[in-house]
């Protein structure tokens, strides 16, 4: 491959971690790595993008309150129609990234490979890696048709490393009119206050599941994660039940975490949960059912009641500090 584009997302502190992971990977796939970004602050992230390997960043510009799917994909498609042809477009598996990927796929009439956790060049084509059946099997796939291939890549599939390049050259794209398809607009943002380290950055993650029995018991998970200077996570079951906000969810539809220690408390270990935490360096599980699938990935498994083990653990940790 000669040229790879990376869809760059901007967070509160510059490009998101996943964006930098994708740029780092892109460097190993092609000599020319370029980014596409949107929003009012593209100039301010050009340095970080360049440092991670992007020579240029195509700037879609400020899209106001519109959801990025249609306008950003529209700008990328227009760029390609104007003759710029990457061999691959790497897109973060995020809310907005998935929207851009779906739109772009239909606009270009090119398929998408999703849930990608690995990318490697082999005999001139790029082989993707997809965990299936809860990560017990790895499927390898590749595009067979005309490029560019669109890849939606999961967080933490690759490490991010700066390469020390100069700031990416910012190339402003002409505005595109996404028409009715681009009409979805954000009228109000709600930010949930969070304290302590972020779930996907913490060295210790303590997660709770339905085995906690009630929303009130989640306080034990929060206290424990606080004592361990970690973050509190959750299974989807208790997010759906409304016990904790979605931002705590670990798994296929939630966050991917790879902490030093992951503590799963009252979580069965469904395949969709496992794909989000199986990469943790160490896994501790507490579950009253010896047959729970979570034990198949645990380094230390305690077959017991969370209502006994967790309070005792909290006490033990408190008495140490």
């Amino acid at each position: 491959m000669d040229r790879v584009w990376v869809l760059a997302e901007t967070g509160e502190q510059g490009p998101t971690a996943l964006t930098l992971e994708l740029l780092t990977k892109a460097r190993t796939l092609a000599p020319a790595v370029e980014a596409v970004a949107w929003g009012p602050g593209t100039a301010s992230i050009a340095a970080a993008l360049g440092e991670h390997g992007a020579s240029r960043v195509y700037d879609v510009g400020d899209i106001g309150g519109r959801l990025p799917g249609a306008p950003v994909a529209g700008a990328i498609a227009a760029l390609m129609r104007d003759g710029e042809q990457p061999d691959a477009v790497l897109i973060p598996a995020s809310y907005d990234g998935r929207d851009v990927a779906g739109r772009l796929s239909a606009m270009l009439d090119r398929p998408v490979l999703t849930n990608v956790t690995g990318l490697a060049e082999q005999d001139g084509s790029v082989l993707t890696e997809h965990p299936i059946f809860g990560g017990t099997k790895i499927l390898h796939a590749r595009f067979t048709g005309e490029g560019p291939g669109i890849y939606v890549v999961r967080a933490k599939s690759f490490a991010s490393e700066p390469a020390g390049g100069a700031a990416a050259e910012v190339i402003a794209l002409p505005p595109v009119d996404a028409g009715p398809a681009g009409a979805a607009t954000i009228v109000q943002r709600h930010v949930e206050e969070a304290s302590g380290p972020k779930l996907d950055e913490a060295a210790v993650v303590v997660s709770g599941g339905r085995g906690l029995g009630s929303a009130e018991s989640y306080a034990l998970i929060e206290e424990l994660s606080h004592l361990l200077h970690g973050a509190a996570g959750a299974s989807r079951a208790i997010v759906d039940a409304g016990w904790v906000p979605y931002s705590h969810q670990v798994g296929q539809t939630g966050k991917t975490v790879k902490p030093t220690v992951y503590l799963a408390c009252g979580i069965s270990g469904a395949t969709q949960h496992l794909v989000g935490m199986k990469g943790s360096k160490n896994i501790v599980a507490i579950n009253k059912d010896r047959e729970a699938p979570i034990f198949s990935v645990a380094d230390l498994g305690i077959v017991g009641d969370v209502h006994k083990v967790l309070p005792a653990l909290v006490e033990a940790l408190k008495s140490r500090s």
Binding site: L127, I132, G135, K137, I138, L139, A141, R142, F143, T144
Partner: peptide, 13 residues
Amino acid sequence: REEVVDVADAEAR
């Protein structure tokens, strides 16, 4: 316009 090349067992923990 994509194909599965192979399916392998993941490295077990």
